[in-house]
């Protein structure tokens, strides 16, 4: 594993404010990300991606269980977007690992399916995998 490149932007979507705070702390702590954007509502995140000049997002962390619009609903809407952020990699974060959910997530184009909380090692692994795939 060589030197890891710095990521431009990572988006966190989770209704739990505490988790979002913790995850952003963990990600920022690695020093590999220029910008961490946090959304408490999936619908707000969707609006963010809908902007005419879509952000260059490298990674999206998505929670499944959220009120109003859950992770899967978000995914379906997200895939309909005209200007998809390139490249985008979806990571699902959840408190409960369910096989059915995992399969559904992968069918919808998700990459990793992980349990909460996100740790520094996990994040580094993901970034390493991402960059080796791109190379």
């Amino acid at each position: 594993m060589g030197e890891l490149k710095k990521l431009k932007e990572v988006v966190l979507i989770d209704d739990c404010e505490a988790d979002n705070f913790l995850h952003s702390l963990v990600i920022e702590g690695t020093g590999l990300v220029e910008k961490v954007t946090v959304f408490d509502w999936a619908i707000d995140a969707l609006e963010y991606f809908k902007s005419p000049t879509p952000p260059e997002v490298d990674l999206i962390f998505l929670d499944i269980n959220m009120p109003r619009m859950d992770g899967f609903q978000f995914l379906e809407e997200f895939k309909k977007l005209e200007f998809l952020p390139k490249p985008f990699v979806l990571i699902m974060l959840t408190t409960s690992i369910l096989e059915g959910d995992k399969q559904k997530f992968q069918e919808l184009g998700g990459k990793e399916y992980l349990g909460k909380p996100l740790t520094e090692e996990t994040f580094l692994d993901i970034v390493a995998k991402l960059q080796s795939d791109q190379a």
Partner: peptide, 8 residues
């Protein structure tokens, strides 16, 4: 069973 975020 909750329909809302606890922050709300």
């Amino acid at each position: 069973r909750r329909l809302h975020r606890k922050e709300e």
